[in-house]
């Protein structure tokens, strides 16, 4: 069986963004539809972010809840001058999910789509699109291949150290984005651990994940906080905070920083990152203010320093 070759387009040169752009990632948690809509309205009106991602990345069973509000949220964000990117599902398995991904690629119109699974990449090939953090981009070979397919922006996997980030940013093949705030997505499964923790199955999950707007804490047997469960997704317990590394990463050519929505005041968080990127506030003070904004959080920056993801490294990058 012979299939037609994939359409290739020449790579577009990465835009130089000396200021560093801010992206609000898609909401990963199962927030109520009203909360989800109001969150984005407020981001549209008040948050100094350039881009906002919308779409269900974790569990397609949640999609019907946000679908009715999607159009008005897109309109509000665009009216406020934000770029809107539609993020795709991160683990595509069922016929329903596959069909939804085909529809997403076909119906996005002039909105950019972010691929979080290779199920959707063939449908996106030949036009500008983004690659999300759930697609494995570890090296320049992969980056070059995806760039030839039309990928113009790549949010890197959480575990990449600064050395690798620098190599990819220097390749100049796509706008490189780094996850800079919030609980880190670490793993995906077909199994729902929120349901399992209540002795339920995914099919009859009763949407118990909605009870934890920042995910369900997972502690070790001896009482240390360790991970967070968000339905089929497993996340870090600690929040990544790269305020202290922003300048060095920008220097390496990283063009964008992603903030993952948490239930804290994300408008204030976005202002801190914006101010820090623009040099209006020094990273240490920004870090202290961030800790005040999210008093329940413990912070980490280990991955970017080439260490354990949960580690907190005080020394500067480089």
């Amino acid at each position: 069986m012979t299939l037609p070759p994939l359409r290739l387009i020449p790579p577009s040169p990465a835009r130089q963004r000396p200021a560093g752009a801010l992206s609000m990632g898609p909401v990963l948690f199962n927030w109520s539809p009203d909360r989800w809509r109001d969150f984005h309205f407020r981001i549209a009106d008040e948050a100094p972010v350039d881009t906002v991602h919308l779409g269900e990345m974790v569990c397609w069973k949640r999609q019907p809840f946000i679908a009715p509000h999607l159009a008005e949220v897109v309109d509000r964000l665009r009216a406020a001058g934000k770029e809107v990117v539609l993020s795709s599902l991160a683990l595509v398995m069922s016929e329903r999910e596959r069909e939804a991904m085909r529809d997403l690629a076909a119906g996005a119109g002039d909105l950019m789509v972010e691929a979080n699974d290779l199920a959707i990449t063939a449908d996106l090939a030949g036009r500008r699109h983004a690659i999300g953090p759930m697609v494995n981009v570890y090296n320049e070979g992969t980056l070059a291949f995806l760039s030839r397919q039309g990928a113009c922006r790549v949010c890197l996997p959480a575990e990449l150290p600064a050395r690798a980030v620098g190599v990819l940013a220097a390749a100049g093949l796509a706008d490189i984005e780094v996850q800079a705030f919030g609980r880190l997505p670490l793993a995906l499964s077909a199994r729902c651990y929120h349901a399992r923790s209540r002795s339920l199955h995914k099919d009859g999950c009763q949407y118990v994940c909605a009870q934890d707007p920042d995910g369900m804490p997972v502690d070790t047997m001896d009482g240390r906080s360790f991970l967070t469960v968000n339905g089929t997704q497993t996340m870090s317990s600690r929040y990544v905070d790269l305020l202290a590394e922003l300048a060095a990463l920008k220097e390496m050519g990283v063009g964008r920083f992603r903030l993952w929505p948490q239930s804290c005041d994300m408008v204030a968080v976005a202002h801190l990152f914006r101010d820090c990127l623009d040099g209006r506030i020094d990273p240490q003070e920004a870090g202290e203010r961030l800790a005040d904004l999210v008093p329940e959080a413990e912070f980490a920056n280990g991955y970017i320093h080439g260490r354990e993801g949960h580690a907190r490294v005080a020394e500067p990058l480089g």
Partner: peptide, 21 residues
């Protein structure tokens, strides 16, 4: 593996050594 293979950073989160890398 109970997680989607190749897309799991749990081990590197705890140890700094990544199955993928």
């Amino acid at each position: 593996c109970v997680m989607a293979e190749g897309r799991c950073a749990l081990s590197s989160y705890a140890t700094g050594k990544s199955p993928n890398m």
